[in-house]
């Protein structure tokens, strides 16, 4: 099962963790077989929002969240269950300075387009 670990940090902490730590962690993820993909992101000021409304494309600066923490990067990992994913997330170097949000990946379904699986 796949999980995305979203790394959130405050603006001033974005450089708190040395890149070399993250590179070393990426290597250990590859070695353990958890790694699927991972990237660090430029600060939120570099973001551009795209919306399509009534067939027209609108491009704006942003979006900027109200919260102080911003998305700083992500890991896409393979784990057998949530406990294993949480163990990996706790090892992500920025967990020491920011917050890691662990989200399960949803399988797209041809039967129920766009809808999360309803509780039975």
């Amino acid at each position: 099962m796949r999980y995305v670990c979203l790394v959130y940090m405050e603006r001033q902490d974005l450089t708190a963790v040395p890149d070399t730590d993250c590179m070393a962690f990426g290597e250990s993820l590859r070695a353990s077989g958890h790694y699927v993909a991972a990237e660090a992101l430029q600060p939120a000021e570099t973001a551009t929002a795209v919306r399509v409304r009534a067939g027209k494309v609108a491009v704006t600066d942003g979006p900027f969240a109200e919260t102080k923490e911003q998305l700083a990067g992500f890991y896409l990992i393979e784990a057998s269950d949530l406990d294993e994913a949480l163990r990996v997330a706790a090892e992500i170097p920025p967990a020491r300075a920011g917050t890691i949000e662990v989200r399960p990946v949803r399988q797209l379904s041809a039967q129920q387009p766009g809808a999360p699986r309803a509780p039975r």
């Binding site: 269950d81 406990d83 399960p104 949803r106 999360p116 509780p119």
Partner: peptide
Amino acid sequence: IVRAKAKIRDARIPYQVPGPDE
């Protein structure tokens, strides 16, 4: 209760006694 059960299923919260470390 419905929300908690959905999270157990969708996030795959395991059905196990944690190991000695945890």
